[in-house]
Amino acid sequence: MNTSQTDALLDVRNLKVEVTTKAGSFFPVNDHSFSVKSGETLGIVGESGSGKSMTAMSLMRLLPKHAAKIRGGSVKLDGRELLTLSEKEMRKVRGADISMILQDPQTSLNPAFTVGDQIKEALKLHAPGGRKTLRERTIDALRRVKVAAPEHRVNSYPGEMSGGMRQRVVGAIAISCRPKVIIADEPTTSLDVTVQAQYLRLLKELQDETGMAILFITHDFGIVANLCHRVIVMYAGRIVESGPVAKIFAKPAHPYTEALISAVPSLHGQKERLTTIPGQPPAPTDIVVGCPFAPRCQYADARCHSEAPPTVAADQSGDHTTSCWRAVEA
């Protein structure tokens, strides 16, 4: 496929997640394959509802109980299959080998515990030690995410901190056990632009320091351009394009990617977001015949409406793929 599987740290093959609701069932994660290497940042981009969070949660095996189930595929971390681990073994992976930064810094810390206790809890579970060592490592984690006066901050409650500071604490929890992979699910969406830029720089520095892989989920192609090495583009539960960021920006192979990129103001020197993509993605439970993007696609023809496009190489190198009939014809 698009990356060599041998040196992949996290390797996901044909992952399928089914959601069952009263209105019917559907696949918010439909046959996803991708991989990340150590030290690499993979962007996962798509509109809201395209299945980004579901993908992330299925890697952690923390899908909503009852509502969602993994229906097939494989998730390998360092060659070890995660989908067949027992819940107990999986708990040892969470927070230790793969950790995650959640979207909302306002609510992702427990208001009833000090931030120190919340960092320490992860350390205690995965790298136990004496009281003093734990305290030192807690302070160290805060220092690494550049929280000022960490010796004092350990005793603060989340309610006493700003949103940007809280998001740093969430970052400190994520890196505290030195995971190999961090999944960041739109970690900066609710932060203002300067705080957001600082946070992204911080993530990059931490990655340089530790060599961890980052899965960075966003709906903002501007951030992808800044931060990511490779990117996968999701639409209605499918990966519609994947490849190196530079290539995709230079020559997007899927009309949806093209539209997303032109919706990024900074890349074109425009002050405001001029292009939004007209129309809406299909409702999850809709039965889609043909290409799911066809109703919104300016290039759609009769075949697009009747037959689903296959996933094909977008160029000769093999690291850039897309699911679009136009790439088949090219």
Partner: peptide, 22 residues
């Protein structure tokens, strides 16, 4: 349903501690 419950699970906290502690 809160995010901090999700974060506790993400850290690898056991379901028992998620319910009775967090």
């Amino acid at each position: 349903d809160a995010e901090y419950i999700k974060l506790a699970r993400v850290k690898g906290v056991s379901e028992w501690a998620v319910v009775f502690k967090h």
